[in-house]
Design a protein around this nucleic acid. Structure first.
Lengths: 211, 211
DNA sequence: TAGATTGTTAATCGATTAACAATC
DNA sequence: TAGATTGTTAATCGATTAACAATC
């Protein structure tokens, strides 16, 4: 088994392994070889074995991998077997869609609060959660100690809100604001999602594909 | 100037360069050196110069880069100066949020149609666009020839809808369904967005950060 | 046992960083 | 001109692929 720091490339592939294994499971399959998985996923068998061996020897020579076991091991590695509490700030179109659309529980999170600065939204209930005023953020966090925050707020307030939330003990950010959160803070982690960047990448590929 | 194929790593950084240059411009700046840009973006100056020189020599020795000029060059490279027509399939929470939330025009696209299979949604108007029935998809595409499709549909119909759309001449997919679109088709491009994968990555980092 | 397939080491490939001559 | 900073080549680093002995 590999020892030391795990590269981003490997980490980013883990959820995809998890997803594919789930599909194989629902297909009624119980075992798979790295070669067959590689064909289904469009990777090399070597890469799959290397990736998995960063965390342990989950396979068996001559047999392959047990799908159910491997999936549950990856769930443990991803930490999605332990629920982390999350609050969402900014219940506009995107915030609302994420609240309703994302299956937080199956991805290691438990959504416990919604916040918005727009008073007209306060009180509205989405997925059994009332939208609260951002003025109640401090009190709510001191009482409930949420661990993560989902930011669906405008870029110009992102930095301020982030700093406030770090003070209140937030340890992880899922950031959808048009702003690159970069925290030198060792024990706070960030996942930036830039949908606009993704769309521009598509534009590039469309523009430069017929060459 | 570099010649040959551009790596994915470079392509994925282009929208971020574009974004940062826009911010610098709105700050009233007119020029910047690779060193200063590198500090602001958290990259190395070497990498920035290498990246840009894949496409041309946009800088000037002793001076640096003209921000306005460089941004417009990157816009051209990304192809966002030429609008591509797009339709969106699946006007659920996510589809609706993308319709309202994404600034398509500034990212090289023009949204021209919304489609859903749910008859109760048909006729509703969002952002001046009426939601149409998927039964009208064929006719609409034959008449309007949209170039790209945004997929916000369930995983089990994703494959079928994609094949239909390719037949109808769609050349690019922005795919939000929980399904990995992989097309061997040389002249069709795909950008998969897996929000769930992103969230699981955050879970990993939260779980494995205090080590 | 023989066949299959892993875990792991070594080789290759590609991306990032460093260095510096060219030049504005 | 002198100073600054690019464009570009070379060196380094890291990730992917290939190979194969270990072993189920």
């Amino acid at each position: 088994m590999h020892n030391g720091v795990i590269s981003n490339s490997v980490i980013n592939r883990l959820p995809r392994y998890y997803r594919f294994l789930g599909e194989l499971k629902s297909l009624g399959m119980t075992r798979i070889s790295s070669r067959e998985l590689s064909e289904r996923m469009g990777l090399t068998a070597s890469q799959i074995r290397q990736d998995l061996n960063c965390f342990g020897g989950f396979g068996q020579q001559g047999y392959g991998y047990n799908i159910e076991l491997l999936q549950s091991e990856i769930a443990k590695i991803l930490g999605i077997d332990t629920k982390k509490t999350a609050i969402l700030i900014g219940v506009g179109n995107l915030g609302k869609a994420l609240t309703l659309h994302i299956n937080f529980e199956s991805k290691g999170f438990h959504l416990v609060g919604l916040f918005d600065s727009k008073e007209s939204l306060v009180g509205q209930v989405i997925k059994n959660l009332p939208i609260r005023s951002v003025h109640d953020l401090d009190e709510f966090c001191r009482e409930n100690r949420p661990q993560t925050a989902i930011l669906c707020i405008p870029k110009d307030v992102a930095k301020g809100v982030t700093e406030q939330l770090i003070m209140l003990g937030i340890k992880g950010f899922w950031n959808f604001s048009h702003y690159d959160l970069r925290l030198e803070n060792r024990d706070v982690v960030v996942e930036n999602v830039h949908l606009g960047d993704s769309l521009m990448t598509l534009s590039y590929r469309l523009t430069n594909s017929n060459e």
